[in-house]
Design a protein around this nucleic acid. Structure first.
Length: 341
DNA sequence: TCTGGGGTCCTAGGACCC
DNA sequence: TCTGGGGTCCTAGGACCC
């Protein structure tokens, strides 16, 4: 199977619309104003050379790279371009495509020469969308996904293969955080238990980790260390489990009447969307981030499933009452949850 | 580094029931 | 009366990913 990942997707799409930006450091995120509360969605490779990274506050990015061009995120446009890319992948006969986000997808294909297929896909995507991508080849999703890192510009040449055959050689000396599913926190917890490398994780006792890190997560981490993952690409369309909107305010809300107004507005936005999708909510959750940055969620099961904006907003306002504190609010969010399939 | 927005899945504790 | 064990649902929070 293959893992296709577009290179610096948002920045690349913007450069296509603004050719004069080619070769310049480009940072996409928020409203494109580095003085606002927002983070980097994608930085071009030129901007990354200055230490600009995804998830970094725009303010910080501007300090590291004052000459960068800051552009607002235009999600509707990225959505369209992404659809074009995915359509290109699906146009190949006999493949199964599992979309993982705007800029990446797994492609299942029966072939004796996956590298040749990968090269063809790269050429097709480039021809049809003028976008570059990197492709990981693997014997399961974990390995294909990780292979892509070694295919990326600066490290590789566009295609890389990672399978059981070279897993130990390539991965064993790397930190556990290199694995897809292990982040900072888990890497720390593992390190505290003497497990720093993929090699050590692969050799760890699943039962011991189950006891310490959770009955499902513990053993799963060991599997990650061994390079084990799902081997079948699923082509069936994804059915969302929830739908939400949230906003970080440029100025904290201090008046609770404003908080109520904003929660109702967010709830109505969510209701409009679940109504359009004909997916009644069975549960509503409200999220508050108080200044400076402590986040809480309260939720409730609805009396009856609904897509009705008035009823959904009223339910959200009821849940809002469950919060004890009315300290200044930095962020509000409302989420609709659907019944389990 | 003063920290977005949209998601998913797992875990643990308490309520409740038999 | 202070005391079982198992199962399921609800809820909040944590961690991770794009």
């Amino acid at each position: 199977m293959l893992h296709v990942d577009l290179d610096q997707f948002l920045a690349a799409v913007e450069v296509l619309r603004h050719p004069e930006l080619a070769g310049r450091p480009v940072v996409v995120g928020g409203k494109g104003d580095p003085t606002q509360r927002a983070v980097v969605a994608t930085a071009s490779y030129e901007a990354r050379r200055f230490g600009v990274r995804s998830g970094m506050p725009l303010r910080t990015a501007a300090k590291r790279c004052p000459d960068a061009v800051f552009l607002p995120a235009d999600n509707a446009h990225y959505e369209e371009v992404s659809e074009e890319v995915m359509a290109t992948l699906r146009a190949r006969p006999g493949v199964v495509v599992e979309v993982m986000g705007w800029d990446e997808a797994f492609v299942g294909a029966e072939t004796d020469d996956p590298e040749a297929v990968a090269r063809t896909i790269r050429a097709d995507v480039l021809e049809r969308t003028r976008l570059h991508c990197s492709i990981g080849v693997g014997d399961n999703m974990l390995r294909a996904k990780l292979a892509t890192e070694f295919a990326k510009p600066g490290t590789g040449d566009g295609v890389y293969r990672l399978t059981a055959a070279n897993w130990a050689e390539v991965m064993f000396d790397r930190p556990t955080q290199a694995l897809w599913g292990i982040g900072t926190k888990t890497a720390r917890k593992l390190a505290d238990r003497g497990i720093a490398t993929v090699r050590e994780l692969a050799a760890a006792d699943p039962a011991a980790l189950a006891a310490e890190l959770g009955p499902a997560l513990g053993p799963w981490y060991v599997q990650l260390g061994r390079g084990i993952g799902r081997a079948v690409v699923e082509g069936t369309p994804w059915v969302p489990r929830s739908r939400s909107h949230e906003t970080t305010f440029q100025e904290n809300l201090t008046d609770w009447a404003d908080v109520r107004t904003e929660v109702a507005a967010l709830a109505r936005r969510v209701a409009a969307e679940i109504s359009r999708a004909d997916r009644p909510a069975v549960r509503v959750a409200v999220k508050i981030r108080y200044a400076p940055f402590s986040t809480y969620t309260r939720s409730a099961t609805l009396d009856a499933p609904t897509t009705d904006a008035d009823r959904f907003a009223a339910a959200a306002l009821d849940v809002l009452e469950l919060f004890g504190s009315r300290r200044p609010v930095r962020l509000l969010g409302v989420r609709a949850e659907f019944p389990p399939v």
